[in-house]
Every structure is written in C-alpha cells, then in structure tokens.
C-alpha cells in the first residue's frame, strides 16, 4: 500500500502550436516524497508540472496527449471535471500570488466554497497557517491585506492556501525563485515538513536546492526525461552523460 504511486503519467506530451514542450514522459510519483524536476530553462519541466493538474488548459493553442493517472482515472479524459482534479492537487506558483483579500480570506475563500461551516473554516485556516509556519507571524493581523506581507511570507501564505483544502499532491513551480536566501531557507524547511503528509513535486532551476530538499530528482532536457533517480544517486553517480554534464555546469 505504502509504495503505490499516487499520481503517474504515461506517454504524456504537451505542445504549444508547433513546438513540442514535453515529449513522451512516463513517470510515477509517490506520496510522502519530494520529487524535484530540474533542467535548463525551456526544457519543459514547468509545462510538465502544470499538466499534472490541468493548469495548461488556460493557455491558448495547447495540445496534450498521453495520460495523467490520478485516483485510477485519466484526468485528461473528457468525462473529467478539471476543477475536481485541482481541488485534490494543489499548486504553488513561481511568484507569490495571494488574492487581493485579507490574510484570513486568502486561505478561507476556497475552504468556504467547499461547503465548510464558518467555525470549521476558521479551524482549517489556523491549522493551515500553522502548517505553513506562518501563524505566529500573522495571528494578530489576520484581517490586514495579504499584500502587506513580505514576499517570503506571501509565498508561505500561498502554500497554506493550497494546504487548507487537504490536497493529496502539492505542485510547486520554482517556489523560491522570487525570494531572498533567508525566505528560501524557510520554504525549504517547510517542504521538508510537509513531505510527511503530501506528495510534493517541485520544479527548480537551482541544483543545490534540488539536492537539499528532494528524495528523487528528474532531469529534463528538451522536453524529454533524461534521468529519474533517487537524488543521492543522481547527484553522486549520474547514469547519463548528459546529466553529468548539466550537473557539472557544462551547459544550462
């Protein structure tokens, strides 16, 4: 039971117009594990990540083929409601994108929409903010605007927002790229804790970060998966020459 993959892709390809961004990717992701997707910019790692909860639906002229299996169902099946998928697969974006609402409302909005009563909502907001290690900093000003928070705090708020829904998978698209080193360290600590409960898939262009936070690393190049191994393995004894060249800074 414990080793069953929670979300997997099979021959997944994504193309924008004529340009193939992701080509024939088959991967499995397990719960209670952090997977890092690395690769040079434009290698398709972000597109792949966004394909996992159908966030590419909003881009023009995107074609997706192959399958993403979640709960035994292909989420690209025409019978699937993508909104239900996104409620179970949370997402944290490259730049913090809190709603233009209060700190409390940022986390509470979606929870309330799912039909929870207001006292349950309050409880969940608190749990999520504690889980995102933000509660101590904001508990006295829950009603003030989320924009008053620092960049790192905003990003943790976005993580809390995703967590409050109780998702099974959390996707993070370069969550630290807009943050300073101290805020980055806090997010990395947080990821290590969240791993106890969620399947976390992180896109990062920072190889040291991938090494620090992940259990498994997937190396993307030109839309294809070159290597997918345990992190310690890939960083110490990469199987592929390309991976080795990338990790040693020959290109990227």
């Amino acid at each position: 039971m414990g080793l069953k993959s929670i979300i997997s892709t099979s021959h997944l390809s994504v193309a924008y117009g004529d340009k193939v961004a992701v080509e024939d990717v088959s991967l499995e992701f397990e719960s209670r594990e952090v997977s890092a997707l690395i690769g040079p910019s434009g290698c398709g790692k972000s597109t792949f990540l966004r394909a996992l909860n159908r966030m590419n639906d909003f881009l023009d002229d995107v074609r997706t083929s192959g399958q993403v299996i979640f709960h035994g169902q292909n989420i690209y099946d025409s019978k699937i409601d993508p909104v239900l998928v996104r409620r179970r697969i949370g997402m944290v974006f490259q730049k913090p994108n809190p709603f233009p609402k209060s700190i409390y409302e940022n986390v509470a909005w979606a929870v309330r929409k799912f039909g929870f009563k207001e006292n349950e909502v309050r409880e969940r907001v608190e749990v999520a903010l504690k889980g995102a290690a933000l509660w101590a900093e904001v508990k006295d000003r829950l009603k003030s605007s989320a924009f008053e928070l620092s960049g790192g705090q905003q990003q943790r708020l976005c993580i809390a927002r995703a967590m409050a829904l109780g998702p099974e998978v959390i996707l993070m698209d370069e969550p630290c790229s807009a943050l300073d080193p101290i805020a980055t360290a806090k997010i990395e600590d947080l990821i290590a804790e969240l791993k106890e409960q969620f399947c976390i898939i992180v896109v990062t262009h920072n190889m040291q970060q991938a090494e620090r936070i992940s259990d498994r690393t997937v190396f993307f190049l030109n839309g294809k998966v070159i290597e997918s191994e345990a992190t310690s393995h890939i960083f110490n004894r990469p199987r592929e020459e390309l991976t080795k060249n990338y990790l040693t800074g020959r290109f990227g």
Partner: peptide, 13 residues
C-alpha cells in the same frame, strides 16, 4: 500542529 494538519488533510479528501 502536525497532527491537526493530517486531520485536515483527511477531511479534505
């Protein structure tokens, strides 16, 4: 906190 979070997670499902 961790315990509560797990509860939240299960409830969420």
């Amino acid at each position: 906190t961790k315990l509560n979070l797990k509860a939240a997670s299960a409830e969420g499902s």
